[in-house]
Every structure is written in structure tokens, then in C-alpha cells.
Design a protein around this nucleic acid. Structure first.
Lengths: 123, 123
DNA sequence: ATCATTATACTACACTTGTCGTTGATGCTT
DNA sequence: AAGCATCAACGACAAGTGTAGTATAATGAT
């Protein structure tokens, strides 16, 4: 697996949010905030198809798009890649975030997750 | 600030590890594992200088290089950029990591950091 | 059958990144 | 002063990315 560039990632995010066999129109809807030309979205979709990230299926006059790589799968891969690139460990990543200043609630959320990951049983 | 490409980041990592006014020879030493041609390192340094990440100073026959952006500063920026790009929150990032399988000790390290960030006082 | 619509496929182009080769300046040797 | 060695500046080039225009093919209206 390879890390995706920012724009292609945005397209994947849209696809993940819409599920399989997403019609083109819906996809454009989800991507509307970016104000990309329709052709631009085309290019990103072709590239994603080339890379094996989405399947394109013809349905009548139009196309349906389906993500071939799941969100969970990609996030798992990407998060580890982030560590390898610069941080080395989750600890270092979170430490960097903390230095920048965590936002309201982020720390609590994280603590709650850790509690859960620890199996709930207190030490 | 802008995120750096992988190779330039490796050069910055080397510079951070060697401190200010790093002579060229030492830098090449640190970068030896990458087996880059000397010219290649030159290019990365020029690009980093253009981007304002390093200062170059002439010292006699050779150059000295100094990082203009601190490691802490860059990590703080980059970690937040990672969240904005794909995860949204530290929680989601760590959840993705957990799904991929945390490595030995990573979870404990992280918990220890959180304890510390929470100011130590148990709730 | 022809024309207009429309969505897709193909092509283009500038900028970035990864990687070096070539040129040029500076100083050391003789 | 001439030639050699060294290091840095500049130029180069392929692949990837951001962004979109032009061409083409299928559909529906006359």
C-alpha cells in the first residue's frame, strides 16, 4: 500500500462516507466544498482506479464508484506510516501534539480510549 | 509553515541531531545510511534553504548548516497537520494505530505520558 | 437521420520531489 | 603561474501531483 496525496485522499474520504456504488452525482455533492472542476474529480478518480483504490462500474449513462480499500484499513496503514516517517512511537506523536496544545476534550477522549484499550481493568 | 517531503525531512532530522553550524562532513556522516550522492544532499539543502528551514554560512573552504526551524516546533506543526488531513482527533489516530496493532510497550508509554499530561493527579 | 446534451476518456501543463551530472570557483602543490 | 583537487552552484530529467481543457461517445428530442 502507498500513501495517497491530499486530493486523492479527500476523494476517498467522500467515497468512504457514501459507501459502495456511489453515483457520480452524489460524489460531486460530497466534494462540492472543494470547488473542483468536474474534470478535476475525474482525474483523481482515474488515478485512484489506477492505483487500485477504487473500482469503476458503468451503470447506464453514468459511472458508479466503489472504494476497494476500506477506511479502517487505510487509516491503520497510514497511522503507522506517520510514526515511521517522523515520530517513532505513538508516545512521541502525542507529545508533539500536547506541545502544540491539545484542544478541548481531546485529552479526555484519548484517555477514555486508552482505558478501553487496556481492557477496562484498572492496573 | 509547510510540511516537508520525506527526503528533506531526513536532512532536517540529521541537522536537529547535530545542532547549529554543522559542517558539511558531519552532516554527510549522519546521512550516510541513505547512500545519497553528495550532489543529492546539496539539492536537499538548497531546497531547505529556499524554504527557510536552514541557514547556510560559509566558513573558509566549506559550508556550515544551521536549522532555522526547531524540531519541537516542526513536530508540533506536523502532528496537528496529520490530524487535520485524515484523523480529526488524537483519539482517532491512536484508534487507527491500535487496529493495526500497537507494538510492545507502545501502549504503556502512551499511558504514562497521558498520566503525566493529566498533571499526575488521579481523578 | 440529425442535433444538442451530457458524462466520460484523453491530453496538457505547471510545480514538486527524488536523484544526479556538469560547471565553476577556491585553494594547495610544485 | 599552472595544474590538480575539492566543494559548492547550477542545470537537468523523470515521476508524481494539482488542476483543468478538449475530444468522444451515448442519450434523448425533433
Amino acid at each position: 500500500m502507498k500513501r495517497l496525496p491530499d486530493t486523492e485522499l479527500e476523494v476517498m474520504k467522500a467515497l468512504w462516507s457514501t459507501g459502495p456504488d456511489t453515483p457520480r452525482a452524489l460524489l460531486e455533492d460530497r466534494l462540492a466544498p472543494f470547488c473542483w472542476a468536474a474534470n478535476t474529480i475525474n482525474t483523481y478518480l482515474s488515478r485512484l482506479a489506477d492505483k487500485g483504490f477504487v473500482a469503476v462500474r458503468r451503470a447506464g449513462r453514468s459511472n458508479l464508484y466503489t472504494p476497494l480499500v476500506g477506511q479502517e484499513e487505510y487509516l491503520a496503514f497510514d497511522s503507522r506510516a506517520v510514526l515511521d516517517r517522523l515520530y517513532g512511537s505513538p508516545r512521541n506523536f502525542v507529545a508533539a501534539l500536547a506541545r502544540e496544545g491539545m484542544r478541548r476534550g481531546e485529552l479526555e477522549e484519548l484517555q477514555a480510549l486508552l482505558d478501553q484499550l487496556n481492557g477496562g481493568q484498572a492496573k
